[in-house]
């Protein structure tokens, strides 16, 4: 039998099709993930030695085991605290430094070579120094995380101030606006979008900082767990740590994207 689609029928469903589309996209993503895991499972069981690639079932088992023993929260909370504090400190210092550099251009020019040198330096190279200075506890990892993200904020805020639209400021000046008023009404809202962009970039970098710190010297955290598992040739442990990190990074990215979208709703 042949279906005859009339014009009205073709137009009408468009009202609810976006949500249907999303659902079907979500459905396809789920199927893709399931197939990937299945292939991995089969390959790990029958083709490769599980020693090299582990298997989703073993990882799931390990996750439950770690959760039950409290190890999961123990390590996760350590890594999250390090990255979170590093990100918080980096954003506060970075935004302040960026605003200062935008305000005092002469001082900014003088310090620029040192600043660009530090920015170009692969920050991982600082890890041994931080361990030496701050020990293998929390402060070294926070500093590692901080050093990864602080430049992102400085450079973005600087760029945000430089890209400021002069016309509204001129207009407000003719209307007798004070500096404080212009900062509150123009500068801060304009820079806010650049700060939110910095957060989106920095979430991943903060985690890298914490992880690098943990890999080099620590007694807890996901980096430590991965490192220790590898040392014991425990591939399942390594993969479990990686899977947890992927989950953390995805959730954190989504939270930042959500907040960022809410704060910059005016971008039609």
């Amino acid at each position: 039998m042949l279906d005859v689609i009339t014009a009205t029928q073709r137009v009408a469903p468009s009202r609810w099709s976006p949500s249907r589309l999303f659902k079907s996209l979500f459905f396809h993503q789920t199927v893709f993930l399931a197939v990937t895991l299945l292939v991995w499972e089969v390959l790990g069981a029958y083709v490769f030695d599980p020693f090299w690639s582990s298997r989703p079932s073993l990882i799931a088992e390990r996750l439950v085991f770690l959760a039950k023993r409290g190890d999961l929260t123990w390590h996760m909370s350590a890594t999250l605290t390090e990255a979170g504090l590093g990100l918080a400190l980096g954003s506060v210092v970075g935004v302040s430094l960026g605003l200062l550099m935008a305000r005092y251009t002469r001082a900014a020019r003088i310090t620029e070579p040192l600043f660009m040198g530090l920015y170009s330096l692969p920050r991982v190279a600082l890890a041994p120094l931080f361990i030496l200075w701050f020990g293998i506890g929390l402060p070294a990892k926070v500093m590692m995380s901080f050093s990864m993200v602080v430049f992102v904020f400085v450079l973005n805020v600087l760029e945000g101030v430089r890209a400021l639209d002069r016309d509204p400021i001129d207009l407000m000046r003719t209307m007798g606006a004070s500096n404080r008023y212009i900062i509150r009404r123009v500068l801060l809202p304009a820079v806010l979008t650049w700060i939110m962009a910095s957060f989106r970039i920095s979430v991943g970098l903060a985690l890298i900082g914490a992880l690098v710190g943990e890999l080099i010297g620590s007694s807890r955290g996901l980096g430590w767990y991965i490192e220790r598992s590898a040392g014991q040739l425990d591939t399942t442990g390594v993969f479990t740590g990686i899977i947890i990190l992927i989950a953390i990074a995805m959730v954190a990215n989504n939270i930042v994207a959500l907040v960022s979208n809410r704060l910059t709703r005016w971008r039609a």
């Binding site: 509204p168 003719t174 209307m175 007798g176 009404r185 809202p189």
Partner: peptide
């Protein structure tokens, strides 16, 4: 204290983040 001068540009110069 001061005469109030109102200026209007060819560009709208509105604040994009403000309603």
């Amino acid at each position: 204290p001061e005469p109030k001068i109102g200026f209007m540009f060819q560009r709208d110069t509105l604040l994009p983040w403000a309603t």
